[in-house]
Design a protein around this nucleic acid. Structure first.
Lengths: 263, 263
DNA sequence: CGACGTGTTGATAGCTTTCAATGGGTGTGG
DNA sequence: CCACACCCATTGAAAGCTATCAACACGTCG
């Protein structure tokens, strides 16, 4: 894809500006286009903090802990802005799920330019706030929710993001594997698979192939997410599984996953 | 404490500005001072998004999930700026750990004012980025680390925040209870207690009373946190406990806790 | 001194992980 | 077009880490 076209799309969708303005002319020289294949990561400017604009495709933001452990912090899709630290407690990488096109900026220069314009500042601040709040929600999910709640929340979050909703049902084409869902939810691939099986047995979802999932009963699914303040189903405290494949436990809350805007 | 004095301190420490400037005169009218006792929460402007400046004391940022479940997303101390959403998937509250003094702003007006000044924008953006990155680190901890790793990381993070370091040892006076540590790490009070006992038995820490902890061996403690890229001790894969009170497992990483600046 | 909240310790149960085997889906090459 | 890897997903059995339940110790406060 053409670099100028992508940059133009970036300016419009992010700041509602046309090229030619001061912001556009300042950011243009530091924007670097990159297109990567599934499984790959951008190596552009990886030695410093970056801001990445997702022009096309989907990526996962992965943090590497010790050993082989990897946590997916967020998923990102077209239009998202991602803040990536170069160093820190963990190593973070944006890895493509599908063929992905992105614009990479050095963070310091990017934010210096943004700060000079009130409108752009306001928009970036709002994106950062949104990313922070979503990350907090994810924290709650990982700290307080059990497996069925996490998977239910994940499915609902994905549905809100890119599901075709029709009459209480909703079908999704998940761009990520079970392994990636597990890495995002802090669960193993087997546990994710079991929860999906449980949801299917409950008649709440149906599956087709490995990535096609249809949400048949959004209400019940929401009940399994356990939003705060909600009744939490018919349980209150110390709710546990019932039998072999189990029913559910309580219900925690939802939407810890996507990554919406700036993350 | 005097409202004007607190506001002045806020302007200086956050933006390096003196009152009288445009920013100060714009923010002054919307700043509301509040002092609350331990266990209490501010009710000022709780119907809308807020930004809270912590002038004095310590608070915990609590998210309520369904049932009785509560997750502490971050701890905040004097000088911190906290972004608080009014609505969302969960209900968030800033609850005082000690007697706390704070300045409360309505978020939208606050950020509108900030965005108009380049310097202030840059600083706020940097704080938001920091908060986001710390929150991500916490996500990794909750998603990938086991109990001993979480507690070790927590202690190290607290030590970095307000510990008197001297010759590989460091003593802390924790302002939070075991219950709050557990709520922050996604663990129960009993598990936290057991990990502390384990660390004491390993000679890595010593305790005195219920809140005084001395870190005797920062190196070993760090090894239990499992930072990425590190050797992870002498383990690689599938590292498990050894015996009754167990040794350790692998080692994950650290510092998911504090909350540093804007969270 | 007794009540109460906090913290510690022990025993048990449970949810998730680990280990292992099978089946399904996709892609490549003959 | 089909065969054959190869990866992904599902399912089962067993083990493990943490939660739950319970009892006790400690310090504070009335």
């Amino acid at each position: 894809m053409d670099s100028s076209t992508v940059f133009q799309t970036f300016l419009r969708s992010t700041f509602g500006q046309d090229p030619g303005g001061t912001l556009g002319s300042q950011l243009r020289p530091i924007a670097k286009l990159d297109t990567i294949a599934p499984g790959d990561t951008t190596r552009i400017g990886s030695d410093q903090d970056r801001v990445i604009y997702m022009a096309r495709g989907a990526t996962k933001l992965v943090a590497s802990a010790s050993g082989e452990r990897e946590q997916i912090v967020a998923f990102h899709f077209a239009g998202d802005l991602v803040s990536m630290p170069a160093q820190g407690i963990h190593r973070y990488r944006a890895i493509a799920l599908t063929k992905a096109t992105m614009l990479v900026f050095p963070a310091s220069t990017f934010f210096d330019c943004i700060a000079k314009e009130a409108d752009a500042s306001r928009l970036v601040i709002e994106r950062l706030r949104g990313a922070l709040h979503r990350c907090r929600d994810k924290t709650v999910a990982l700290g307080q929710k059990n497996a069925i709640e996490r998977v239910s929340s994940f499915l609902l979050a994905m549905a809100e993001r890119f599901g075709g909703t029709e009459l209480n049902t909703c079908s999704l084409e998940l761009p990520m594997s079970r392994r990636e869902i597990g890495a995002s939810l802090g669960l193993t691939i087997e546990t994710v698979s079991r929860q999906i099986t449980t949801l299917r047995n409950l008649g709440i979802i149906s599956t087709e192939g490995r990535s096609q999932i249809t949400l048949l009963d959004l209400e019940k699914l929401t009940g399994l997410c356990g939003r705060s303040g909600g009744s939490g189903g018919q349980f209150r405290k110390k709710p546990k599984f019932d039998s072999d494949q189990g029913r559910l436990r309580s219900a925690g809350l939802a939407a810890e996953t996507t990554g919406g805007k700036l993350s």
